[in-house]
Write a protein that binds this DNA or RNA. Sequence first.
DNA 1: AAGCTCTGCTTTTTT
DNA 2: AGCAGAGCTT
Length: 650
Amino acid sequence: MKLNSQQKAAVEYSDGHVLVLAGAGTGKTRTIIARAEHLIESGVEPQRILMLTFTRRAAQEMINRLSLKVGEISNLVLAGTFHHFCLYTMRKMSKMFGIESSTVIDRDDQIQLMKLVRAKYKKEGENFTASDKLVQLYSYAKNTNQPLKDYLDKYTEFEDEEFEKVIKIIKEYETRKKDNNYLDYDDILHIFAKKLHEIPEIRERIRNYYDHILVDEMQDTNPLQWLILEGLRDPALLFCVGDDAQSIYSFRGADFKNVHYFTSRIPNSTILRLEKNYRSTKGILDLSNWLLNESTLNYNKNLESVRGTGITPVLIDFENDFEEARWIAEDLVQRHETGCRWDDQMVITRSGLASRTLEAILIEKQVPYKFIGGTSLLQSAHVKDLLSLMRCSASHQDEIAWIRYLTLWPKLGDVTALRIIERMKKAPLFNEAIEILRSEKRIIPEILAGPHRVIEKWANPHDAIRAGIDVLEPLLKTKYSKWDTRRKDFDLLASLAKKHKSLLSFIETYTMDPISTSEASRLEGDDAVVLITVHSAKGTEAKTCYLIKVEPGMYPHVRSLGNFDEEEEERRVLYVAMTRAQNELIITRNLSQGGRYNFHGGYRADHSRDGSSYFLEKLPENLLDISYVGFGQYGMQNSDTITPWDREGY
DNA sequence: AAGCTCTGCTTTTTT
DNA sequence: AGCAGAGCTT
């Protein structure tokens, strides 16, 4: 397809840095790819182009699409997330960055480590801030590049005593992290940004690698990432693409207002706009535009449709979750029977939890689906168990991995494990540490067999994983129910490992961007309905989109109520969800509990400053076809298929 | 010291 | 409903 004049202008712009403000569906990806193509054709060496995207999935897609245009040389372009790029670069110059022999840890590991520290400071019976919360605070301060103290001062309300303790714990967490040679997600950006700005040698070297830096989803970059871009630019030119109305990652430190300051922060820069929407029919855009215009903020956005009027978006009310889920499942099946592919249909959910009922029904009705977002494969407990064994085999210093591995075994708890690990860590060599382990009374031969057998196969990641599985399976079988399902993940893991040269690179790759179970099955390429969180759906589209549970308490989410900025972000979340649809937008919600969002325990959301904090409170009746599906139509006709929890007053 | 049971708390999004 | 942590039992 040919570029329109706005896109063409952006692609060919050569007078300095540029920010392309591109509304939903205006051909953002196409423009970035065309830019890369244009650069290559005008003689820029592909390896001097850096593309930064938001997920590895997006990076891969860019490269694939680029290769259709320019062929094999597209692989010379470096494309990845900020995290990938930073880590990749730091690994290449690991001495200079001082990150030799470090292990990347994920959020879960961070929390484990924080727990160890917190336990020492927490008095018995004291109700002290939880570890995950501490990690969250720490991470946010890092990503927004402010001293922890300042951040806590401004945004939290700790009593003096707790305040001091929080700081102390986090300080010690940092020390412990350093001692263990761990890098958490935030360190990857932070260390890179810091050295880039502080060490001229590093800065000069890296700046000389690239002539052009293309950045996707600019509205979601946080201050640390801005700092990185500032360090990389000139002579390299920035080509950033984003949409302030689609900024939905403030919880990670992003501030969409940053894109507004682009021209003042980056000298010799300009802003271009893309406003023609090619994705959705007019009815869908009218509703989306309405939502944004309801805001007191001025997003200065009115997407212009180049497609026809199309089908008016539909809003359907249900009695309860179950009705909603059943109706959707049946609608999906019906469309499939009339010739739609399953994956032309996307079900968009605010949270992983909110889609549980639907998942149960889809399974029951044997609708093939894949869930994207939420808990991923590598975060599930049994996979972490296996990976901990792999990590133990790589290093006797990996505290978190050893605790996990040792405490898997019966009669071995955290107290003993920690004591043993303390001893092991003092050993300079791995083999000496293993000897210490062997000398411990509580260590049975099977425990030693784990690392031993993995190391034998170390050179071949696939075999090493297989060896690990052999050791752990008898143990894990007893630990987890539904073992057969979990066991399948191991096979998947082993086959993923085949693609990697070293086990450590395999682990690192997936620690950085955990692949979700369903995403993994997508590699197999089968047709299935896509069930996806709004956050993961950003950047995707489908012919028919169902937005489920668009209820008070969900949009905006209860957690955001009372905070203007957060509620406004929720509006953008809904906006992103709506603008995914190409032809049909079906919004569903249920009216149970008086239309109020209810938690399981019966806690009723106190929603509202003025009772109207719900985006569909004022229904735009001219923009929506509204209907109601009550009991009888879909409800009880098949009551034997109702699962127990649905009887319990849902 | 390990492991079990009970209670009470929290329910968003992710590199 | 599911989970983490407290406290009780082995």
